[in-house]
């Protein structure tokens, strides 16, 4: 039975199709056109279930290093050490955007993306929603949160409720602020566009995971005259947000937002760890590239 084919100069082949516990023998056959020259078969060999995948060793090492950095910086933050966080203009604008909505007496629209709650971008969007809701509670600004996933809806509603309670305004919380619309992508976009054109929110937050609907939402918001703050980790949607919105949280800034807005020391600690991890990656990239260039080694050779 033919197992696989390798081209010239290949010296190994990994058979991924074997069944554990079954014995196999392998033979090589050098091919020229349709003529083959088979070797003698090897001895009987077999595979067994493994408790570690050595191909993922680099992932394990990376995970451990970044985990240690997070734990270290969280401990530092807990000990009361001040940590520097660079300015993020999109997040600095949150206060100003909320103030504008309050002055205009118009609502704030918060769209937490279209993904499910197991998407980290959605979790980041919900964390920012918590901080925004605290401020809308203080300013008594109407908040509108249409949601595209039922579980996200439940979490978002609880989050806004807690924020209003935390801000000392449980009376101002209205259960209808957060509502489920639909999980159909373009039906949701149509519904949110409708809210933008009918209710004319002063500020639109488009934060979380977006797909093709990103520009439909952002352009409608821009045409309605709202100040728009967007944030996503979907690289392909970033250009649309940068074009159509006033402020955009690019990639990792989305994950930094909850720490930045809340100034919670433990969250800031994790943020510092993130930055140092990035530094390590940059140093590794530059160093390994220099070594590879200097000694003519390819990348898989360097990483084993």
């Amino acid at each position: 039975m033919r197992v696989g084919f390798r081209g010239p100069r290949a010296d190994s082949y990994l058979d991924e199709e074997v069944t554990d516990g079954t014995r196999y023998r392998y033979a090589l056959s050098a091919l020229r056109d349709t003529v083959g020259a088979p070797t003698e078969p090897t001895g009987w060999v077999g595979s067994s279930p493994q408790w570690f995948d050595p191909r993922r060793l680099a992932a394990l090492v990376g995970t451990l290093v970044i985990s240690l950095l997070v734990v270290y910086f969280v401990r530092r933050a807990r000990a009361g050490r001040r940590l520097f966080v660079r300015r993020i203009s999109g997040l600095d604008a949150v206060e100003e955007a909320l103030g504008r909505a309050t002055e205009m007496g118009r609502p704030i629209l918060y769209v937490p993306g279209l993904s499910r709650v197991d998407d980290v971008a959605t979790i980041a969007a919900l964390n920012i929603l918590g901080e925004v809701a605290k401020k809308t509670a203080r300013f008594n600004t109407p908040l509108v949160v249409p949601v595209a996933d039922p579980i996200v809806f439940t979490v978002a509603q609880e989050m806004v409720r807690q924020s209003y309670t935390g801000a000392g305004r449980p009376d101002a919380f209205n259960q209808d602020m957060v509502f489920f619309v639909t999980d159909q992508q373009f039906a949701y976009a149509a519904a949110v566009d409708g809210i933008m054109t009918r209710e004319k929110p002063a500020t639109n937050f488009l934060i979380g995971m977006f797909w093709a609907e990103s520009l439909i939402l952002a352009e409608t918001g821009a045409l309605s005259g709202a100040v728009q703050i967007a944030g996503t980790d979907a690289i392909s949607q970033l250009p649309f947000f940068i074009t159509a919105c006033d402020y955009t949280l690019i990639g990792e800034e989305l994950y930094a937002a909850s720490a930045y807005l809340s100034r919670e020391p433990l969250l800031l600690g994790a943020l510092a760890a993130q930055d140092y991890s990035k530094l390590i990656i940059i140093v590794l990239l530059l160093g390994l590239t220099a070594i590879a260039l200097a000694f003519g080694i390819n990348a898989p050779g360097l990483l084993g």
């Binding site: 995970t63 970044i66 997070v70 980290v120 980041a124 980790d233 690289i235 970033l238 690019i250 990639g251 990792e252 989305l254 994950y255 930094a256 994790a270 943020l271 760890a273 993130q274 991890s277 990035k278 990656i281």
Partner: peptide, 11 residues
């Protein structure tokens, strides 16, 4: 951006 996003997701 991808590196930043991956680290952000990890953290």
């Amino acid at each position: 951006i991808g590196f930043g996003v991956s680290l952000g997701i990890f953290a």
